[in-house]
Amino acid sequence: MESSTRWLTHQASRLTCPEPYFVSEGLYSTLEELENTREVTLHVMTIGGFIEDPAKKDDFTAVSSALRQYLPERDTPFILDVDLDFFSTKNPFKTLYSRINLYDKLSPIYAFNRPDSTDPESVKEATAARNEQLTELQNLFDYLEEHRSLQGYEGEKSARYEAVELIYRELTSAYKQSEIDWKIIHDAGCTRDDTDLPHHVTTPNDLDRLINGTFRSFLTALPVPPTIVTIARSSDDDYCPSENVDQIQIGVLDELRQYLGEVDVQLAYEDEEEVH
């Protein structure tokens, strides 16, 4: 998938792309509403298809051809950003407060209704409704985080208020107040729009194929070597399973060394761990 969009580059970021993901995040705006814009091209390709279907094969010739549109010259500088949860990922919210099956209970409260069309007015209306929904829910959960109950809440006693109040009663009957993080609950709810977060903890054999096969082939398909490679472990937030992340990191770095030769590796997360 390829699309061009305008992106606001100061204050809160907004963009003109009507893809449901951006609308559900409340980020859509028309071009007329934006200032200080930049045009961004988003080109999406899928690799590692064998994870879903063993018969699928990646077309790295097509990948290389697509990349040459953006890297036409050998000295074109670019950053290769690798997120390790590409190789193995889990939804860290699925088991949140599982005694009351919280994740499923959040779904109807945070549900997102896609606009019927990509007509700008329809998308604007859907965005406004989504922002109103998320703002009310954030206010409710912020109040719970600060006051540990909804007593004294001065906002509208809407259907969402009643739904959150029910969750409050169920949670506090199953957990101590000290165990409940209301802000994380809101974060979890915000992921429940009209699709779920990906959840696929990859088996060791498939991990080897993804790293030594798929990732190696992807590097070979690059028209030119990257100027800088950044890697996100995504393990502190549990998107990349803790039992996989070190194995994946070692494998990815090995592949990069084979492709690039000697590289200067800076493990920034180790410095952060020392600070904490």
Rank of each mutant, 00 (worst) to 15 (best):
L71I: 14
A268P: 02
L222I: 11
S178I: 03
G189F: 04
I185K: 03
F87H: 05
A159G: 04
P20W: 00
A174Y: 03
L84E: 06
H276E: 13
V201Y: 03
G213P: 09
R169C: 07
D83G: 15
L219P: 02
M1G: 15
D75H: 12
R233E: 13
A111W: 07
N139D: 15
T118C: 00
A111S: 12
E154I: 08
P223L: 00
L67W: 11
G189A: 03
E145W: 09
E170Y: 02
T230K: 05
R74H: 09
S88N: 04
E243D: 15
L42M: 13
R216E: 15
F141T: 01
I167K: 04
L267P: 03
P226F: 15
S29W: 00
Y110N: 01
P225N: 07
D238C: 12
N139C: 09
L84V: 08
K176N: 14
F112I: 00
L197K: 12
P226K: 08
K105W: 09
G48A: 10
C240Y: 06
L31R: 10
P20C: 01
I167A: 05
L15K: 10
A128S: 12
L140S: 03
L166M: 12
A12P: 05
R38K: 11
P54D: 10
C190R: 14
A66G: 07
L260P: 06
D238Q: 13
D187A: 13
A129H: 06
R68M: 05
T95H: 15
P77G: 04
K57F: 14
T135A: 13
L210D: 08
E132W: 03
P225I: 07
A174R: 01
Y269I: 01
Q138L: 12
A111D: 12
D264Y: 12
L210M: 14
V252Y: 00
F218V: 01
G49D: 14
R148H: 15
W182V: 00
T127L: 01
P225C: 04
Q266C: 09
H199P: 04
E2L: 07
T203C: 00
D254I: 00
E52G: 15
R38N: 03
P77E: 08
T195C: 10
T127A: 04
I180W: 07
S107A: 14
F86C: 10
Q258W: 12
L15A: 07
D254F: 06
F93C: 05
L253K: 13
G213F: 14
V201R: 09
T202V: 11
F215S: 05
S3H: 08
L31W: 12
G48S: 10
K56I: 12
Q133D: 06
E121N: 11
L207E: 06
